[in-house]
Design a protein around this nucleic acid. Structure first.
Lengths: 339, 339
DNA sequence: ACTGGCACTCCTGCGAGGCGAGTGCCAGGG
DNA sequence: CCCTGGCACTCGCCTCGCAGGAGTGCCAGT
């Protein structure tokens, strides 16, 4: 009974603090939520909660604010993911349905998430380590220069030009193109390099250097695809982080410009199919104390292709944000699967 | 004589204000620059300069700061573009030489510019309105689904999938591919649509719907290429804008997330081969009062492909920024020409 | 176990006052 | 005619001190 009320109090504190951004005191608490007891009683509960580390006072005589531990308990046990309104769902759908290609899907997703949550959105490109080669194309630019295009089944295209040590006649180019495609088309990116093994030996010695150059470029492209790309948007929402500005915003902006940081923010969670919330110090960067990350994987039914998420101050609306992130991930997953 | 000194005073005010970010008074001015006259004399000059609108006082009794008009005069007549140190030049070169493809070049350029100027960098992708079709590739995904890939001579690749109303046999696909290429390969993007005119009629009536679908998709791709892309980086440097924060940074961050805004910031200048400086109110957005844009075109000798530039507070180091922007544009131009 | 009352802490806002930077003007000298 | 030193004046900024008030902890009573 007492335990129950203490949790109610914590929930009330989190909700009030999130909406007002001000430390919340016992009196305002009983006014806004009908807890059925007097402020004095609440004060006792608050003292206990503080003792246990769930809340803290910024100053001796101010209201309480939740600690990271408090938010953690709130997220784990005191709140449920808030479903979107049907209007929001329709907005998501119509916003994403207009996308024409992968870049567009990712771009729209970032903007959508940022708008919906009014925070900073991060979206990872569908990972290609699990995707496969759809087609390899060779285009002669000059007689000693070839454009290599690698197309994957997730719709990504990687191109690079190859300088050849010698000339390459058109017939050879066609031959090489078809041999490459027989070797790697439909094969997972990770396994494709193995399939290219004996290929060079099939050509006569005088052609081998040129063939070798093309194969080498293809190998590089394949490997490079493993480098995962990440897009960020909604940085203007950082302004809402608080009036305690420069200290907060500077490191965050810096962090957000580094791909590696963004990847780790999304990446390190365990099971990608489950919504992950990392609160304050729980995330892997010192500089990002005071910010929380809500992320989840998206993809087809059979496999998660990548992750997306939202980054905001620890004092964020967790239920709402979690709802938005989950909903967007589902729609994007569907769309990626169809494409 | 008097005119000369007045200009010296203006130059000194701009330089001091840019480096200290504080209104500069007559006394500190004579101390830091050896003007050879007394503060009282300077005060007279300052009064004149203020009368003419080149400088202003934030408060009745504070030093002077340059107005937009003052900066304009400074840029036009009182300063010269500062050449980079050889160390900086080497840094540019080694930083850009590692680029592997167009995306990489643009990405590196943005980061480089942001680092070099410690401001916000904006780089436009090489414009395709002037570039031409290098190759059109068709890849069958299923019997009624085709992937269309458009490759341009600036190295950009645009792909999209096409749903066909009916099946398309492989032979037809090959035929269509070669016809498309004969029609548009080497042709400027803007003119390519004209070349596709009678093409559909060459096929038998039962195939026309499918051919028509492919041609329509190609037309869309061609048109869409005209939409120019822009990349921005170095947003963390916004923090340096000033201690008068939220008002300044919020609108700027918002503006920077809109491609259209970025394009207009770079785009509207007259001759792209000449370094353009747009100061404060001179730029086309109300929200960006207080920010200046330094931009220039880059490209091959024969034609400018796109623009790049830097955005910062009006109180920026114009000579240094102009030097950096110009130098980077030259190197990028070379690299794009080679690729 | 909860409540009302009470003393205590300490943050916040506000106004007064002094300080100092910077100015404009004036009279004098080269 | 231009420059200079001097002087009075204006104002923004900082500091200080002083309520005011929100919130707490504790205690005694029900």
């Amino acid at each position: 009974m007492l335990e129950d009320r203490k949790l109610d109090v914590l929930r009330a504190i989190v909700e009030d603090y999130v909406s007002t951004h001000e430390p919340v005191g016992s009196k305002t608490l009983v006014e806004r939520h009908n807890l059925g007891v007097s402020p004095a009683t609440i004060r006792n509960d608050m003292a206990a909660l503080e003792e246990e580390g769930y809340i803290a006072q910024p100053h001796t005589s101010a209201g309480r604010i939740p600690t990271d531990k408090g938010y953690r308990l709130f997220v784990d046990r005191l709140s449920s993911v808030k479903p979107l309104t049907s209007a929001e769902r329709r907005a998501i759908q119509s916003f994403l349905d207009g996308a024409v290609d992968l870049d567009d899907i990712v771009g729209r997703t970032v903007r959508l998430l940022a708008q919906l949550t009014r925070q900073v959105a991060v979206v990872q490109y569908p990972s290609l380590s699990r995707s496969s080669v759809r087609h390899v194309e060779l285009v002669a630019l000059t007689s000693s220069r070839v454009l290599l295009v690698l197309i994957t089944n997730t719709g990504r295209v990687e191109q690079r030009t190859v300088e050849l040590p010698g000339d390459m006649p058109d017939t050879l180019l066609g031959d090489l193109r078809s041999r490459l495609n027989t070797a790697v088309a439909g094969v997972r990116l990770a396994e494709a390099p193995d399939r290219l093994g004996g290929l060079v030996d099939r050509f006569t010695a005088d052609l081998r250097p040129s063939v070798q150059a093309v194969v080498a470029a293809l190998l590089e492209s394949l490997v490079e695809q493993h480098e995962e790309r990440v897009v960020m948007g909604g940085a203007a929402n950082l302004v809402r982080f608080g009036p305690d500005f420069p200290q907060t915003i500077q490191p965050v902006l810096e962090a957000l410009e580094e791909q590696v940081v963004l990847l780790r923010l999304l990446g390190e969670a365990s099971d990608p199919s489950v919504l992950t919330v990392r609160i304050g110090h729980e995330n892997p960067f010192e500089r990002l104390t005071g910010t929380s990350v809500v992320s989840v994987g998206y993809g087809t039914e059979s496999e998660m292709l990548a992750k997306l998420g939202v980054l905001g101050p620890t004092r964020m609306d967790y239920p709402g944000t979690m709802g938005a992130v989950r909903a967007v991930a589902r729609y994007v997953g569907k769309i990626v699967a169809e494409a």
